[in-house]
Computed example of a mutant assay.
Amino acid sequence: MSHKPKILITRKIPAECLSYLKEHCECTLWEEEGSIPRNQLLEQIKDYEGLLLSGTSIDAELLDRAPRLKAVSSISVGYNHFDIDEMKARGVIGTHTPYVLDDTVADLVLALMLSSSRRIAELDAFVKKGNWRRGAVREEHLFGMDVHHATLGIIGMGRIGEAIAKRAVRGFDMNLLYYNRSRKPDVEERFGAEYRSLEDLLTESDFVVLMTPLTPETVRFIRKEHFEMMKPSAFFINASRGQTVDEQALIEALRNGTIRGAGLDVFDKEPISPDNPLLQLDNVVTVPHIGSATVKTRNDMAMVASQNLVGALTGGKAYVVPELQYLVK
């Protein structure tokens, strides 16, 4: 390749990813902690054809400053930080990293189910505070709920949903219900899954796992009336996006016993505010949006994102987001 595209890498990446990119591109790397501040990014972007990032908004403001930009590669599966219409208008390709994190996120969902139902975080704090003393509390006050053989309802049976289903059915002998835009006969055959309407799934499930992508149609997808349909013994698990749930309605449902508990990896505002009522509730397990946060998975995501950027700039293979697929020649 006679011409090496000029790219900007907005955060530190593994050495092997940087080495790969340097073989194919002229690279500028942000070497400080975190991502490059937006004001500096806007100042520098005008000379670059490619951008490797994680979570930075690609919008009209940035694209107006980037006349040479041809491709943006995000180290993520979700791409709601892409302004698709603005990218279409300028012919800028956007890529993401599907498939890589499916198993890792599914592991976390099972961890949230177990932690919330068996009260792991709550009882860990109980022990560490010195409250576990003979006669101090009745044993029944420490009881949780079983995961094995319970009924799991998955809302959004995509790749991650299928990975969750596999673990739940084959590992915990759970009964599986699902709600999806379209039925999936292969999932029904492999895991004995039963398709339900959203309302029936909520009514019948012991655990409700929300795995829908964030789109204009799924904003506040789960609301007060949906929590009221759930069993008072049920647990709600969200590892999709915080905005797919009416968070205030969730808080009320947890406070007043409409549902038993929740396990949350995502929140309406991130990082979550220290005064968010969710942080004061014992029946909620909270983790800081770590669905894909293992060393191997994050390294693999960075490599796929690097390969995507090279592919998008040179006419090779890349995981282009569906709405921009037509831009690929």
Results as ranks from 00 to 15, higher is better:
Glu199Asp: 14
Glu228Tyr: 03
Thr258Gln: 13
Ala253Met: 06
Ile251Gly: 01
Glu194Asp: 02
Lys224His: 13
Ala302Gln: 11
Leu278Ser: 03
Asp246Glu: 15
Asn256Ala: 00
Ile222Gly: 01
Val304Thr: 13
Val285Lys: 04
Ser197Gln: 10
Met229Ala: 13
Pro213Lys: 03
Leu210Gly: 12
Pro216Thr: 09
Ser240Tyr: 07
Leu279Lys: 13
Ser205Ala: 14
Glu247His: 03
Ser205Phe: 01
Asn308Val: 05
Leu278Tyr: 11
Lys296Ser: 13
Thr244Ser: 12
Asn276Gln: 02
Phe191Arg: 00
Asn308Cys: 06
Pro277Asp: 03
Val266Lys: 02
Ser240Arg: 06
Pro322Asp: 12
Glu270Ala: 06
Thr314Met: 12
Lys231Asp: 12
Lys317Gln: 15
Glu199Asn: 13
Ile251Arg: 01
Glu199Gly: 08
Phe227Gln: 08
Ser273Tyr: 13
Arg223Gly: 13
Ile259Asn: 10
Gly315Val: 09
Gln280Phe: 13
Leu254Val: 10
Ala253Ile: 09
Gln307His: 14
Leu278Thr: 11
Glu228Asp: 14
Glu199Thr: 15
Glu204Cys: 09
Val266Met: 08
Pro288Phe: 05
Leu254Gln: 04
Thr297Ser: 09
Met301Ser: 10
Ala262Leu: 04
Val304Gln: 12
Phe207Gln: 04
Gly261Cys: 10
Pro288Trp: 01
Val208Arg: 04
Thr203Val: 09
Ser233Cys: 04
Asn299Thr: 07
Ala262Asn: 04
Ile222Tyr: 01
Phe221Glu: 00
Thr218Phe: 06
Asn276Asp: 14
Val208Pro: 06
Val219Gln: 13
Gly192Tyr: 07
His289Asn: 12
